[in-house]
Amino acid sequence: MKGFRRLALAVATLAIGAAPAFAFPDRPVQLIVPWAAGGGMDAVMRIFANGLEAELKQPVNVINRTGGGGVTGHTAIATGAADGYTIGGVSPELSFFKTLGLGDLTVDSVDMFSRVSLIPAGVTVKADAPYKTVADFLKAVKESPKGTFTSSGTGTGGSWHIASGGLMKAAGLPADQIRWVPSNGGAPALQDLAAGGITAFTGSPIEAKAMLDGGRVRTILTMTEERHPNFPDVPSAKEAGLDWTYQNWFAIAAPKGVPADRRKILYEAAERTMKREDVRKGMADRGITPVWDTPAQLQDYVKTFSERGNGVLKDLGLAKN
């Protein structure tokens, strides 16, 4: 009997040893979005998540973690478990938190894979606003006391705030001529605009598409070199004689320290995702330019972008570091 038990134990041990390791991932992955549902990043990340699900053969659950002008969600990505089951969408605000004195979070706090999209800033006003052109709008801003006009779209010092400050400088005005009203993203800011709570939205007209289609708001400028293909009737900044362009970017990142084999699976699945026709078309149909970087391209782009944005933050009087 004892011999039989020893034999059974040996067989069981061999069976366990021969069992294949589980395939990663074997359960759902969460994708943290630091901004509100319905905004630009949320739209991009949900398109991306649908494609990534198909590549990983596992659900990818989008989790909106808002608050603190993006600090809450970006912190959740940086401090998430480094097991490959947490990834996130990173926005340009991560380049500016330290300058703004909001903590030590930087682009080096996470493992950035690549940018996945570019979205242009613009100037959007209420449908019944008296400003038919950006020239009308800037004339009214110039003739009014500082702070009379208000704008929103992100937290103080966030990407769309920088877009507003850079536009004011290009128009020969102080960067803070328009008073900034912080928000948790484009969606709540646009609701505020439609209700008359703010004068302008300097985020992307892509975020405003539903309201534009519904006739509740009007976009009078895109902060681009040329007219945007999705907004052919809207002048570009260059066309309006303004030396200022600004495009927001969203990137995919993970907590630092994900095991190399799992990171490789995630990275390659993300790269395949951005080659999928349904993902590229889903973004392009919304006016979002899909992007995939090499590591060197990403590093160079983020460095230049950060320097430019931090310069505007100094002009806005917001730089603490």
Results as ranks from 00 to 15, higher is better:
residue 313 L to F: 05
residue 15 A to D: 03
residue 159 S to E: 08
residue 43 A to G: 14
residue 62 V to Q: 02
residue 160 W to C: 07
residue 315 D to C: 10
residue 285 D to F: 05
residue 133 T to V: 05
residue 257 G to D: 12
residue 178 I to C: 07
residue 14 L to D: 10
residue 283 M to V: 05
residue 267 Y to T: 03
residue 41 M to S: 13
residue 270 A to F: 10
residue 178 I to Y: 14
residue 187 A to Y: 15
residue 315 D to Q: 12
residue 234 V to S: 00
residue 55 E to W: 12
residue 193 L to K: 08
residue 34 P to V: 04
residue 202 T to S: 07
residue 156 T to A: 02
residue 109 S to M: 06
residue 162 I to N: 08
residue 293 D to C: 01
residue 77 I to L: 06
residue 187 A to V: 06
residue 159 S to Q: 02
residue 99 T to R: 09
residue 242 L to D: 04
residue 233 D to H: 14
residue 55 E to L: 11
residue 18 A to N: 12
residue 63 I to F: 09
residue 228 H to Y: 10
residue 43 A to F: 11
residue 290 P to N: 04
residue 66 T to E: 13
residue 143 E to P: 00
residue 207 E to N: 11
residue 116 V to M: 13
residue 246 Y to P: 06
residue 13 T to Y: 13
residue 275 K to H: 15
residue 110 V to M: 04
residue 60 V to P: 03
residue 185 G to H: 10
residue 289 T to R: 03
residue 165 G to E: 02
residue 6 R to F: 15
residue 63 I to S: 04
residue 47 I to R: 15
residue 236 S to P: 02
residue 23 A to K: 02
residue 280 R to A: 02
residue 266 L to T: 03
residue 239 E to Q: 11
residue 191 Q to T: 08
residue 61 N to L: 10
residue 7 L to E: 07
residue 177 Q to C: 02
residue 70 G to I: 10
residue 134 V to R: 13
residue 305 F to D: 13
residue 294 T to S: 12
residue 75 T to H: 14
residue 299 Q to V: 12
residue 137 F to E: 00
residue 319 A to M: 15
residue 211 M to V: 03
residue 127 A to Y: 00
residue 126 K to A: 05
residue 259 P to G: 07
residue 299 Q to F: 06
residue 129 A to G: 11
residue 78 A to M: 08
residue 95 S to Q: 12
residue 298 L to D: 03
residue 152 S to L: 01
residue 217 V to G: 07
residue 249 W to N: 12
residue 15 A to G: 09
residue 274 M to V: 10
residue 237 A to M: 10
residue 18 A to L: 13
residue 185 G to N: 02
residue 182 P to I: 08
residue 79 T to W: 05
residue 91 S to T: 13
residue 63 I to Q: 12
residue 135 A to Q: 14
residue 99 T to Q: 08
residue 232 P to Y: 05
residue 241 G to L: 13
residue 269 A to E: 04
residue 252 I to D: 06
residue 77 I to F: 06
residue 106 T to F: 11
residue 233 D to T: 14
residue 5 R to Q: 01
residue 168 M to Q: 12
residue 292 W to T: 13
residue 47 I to Y: 14
residue 71 V to W: 04
residue 184 N to E: 05
residue 44 V to F: 04
residue 153 G to S: 10
residue 218 R to W: 01
residue 146 K to Q: 15
residue 63 I to E: 14
residue 220 I to N: 08
residue 23 A to D: 09
residue 183 S to H: 09
residue 310 N to I: 14
residue 192 D to V: 01
residue 154 T to E: 11
residue 223 M to W: 11
residue 43 A to P: 04
residue 105 L to W: 07
residue 275 K to E: 15
residue 145 P to Y: 08
residue 286 R to I: 05
residue 98 K to W: 02
residue 33 V to P: 03
residue 45 M to S: 11
residue 297 Q to D: 10
residue 98 K to G: 03
residue 194 A to G: 08
residue 252 I to M: 07
residue 171 A to L: 08
residue 65 R to A: 14
residue 308 R to G: 01
residue 56 L to D: 11
residue 315 D to G: 03
residue 73 G to C: 09
residue 273 T to K: 10
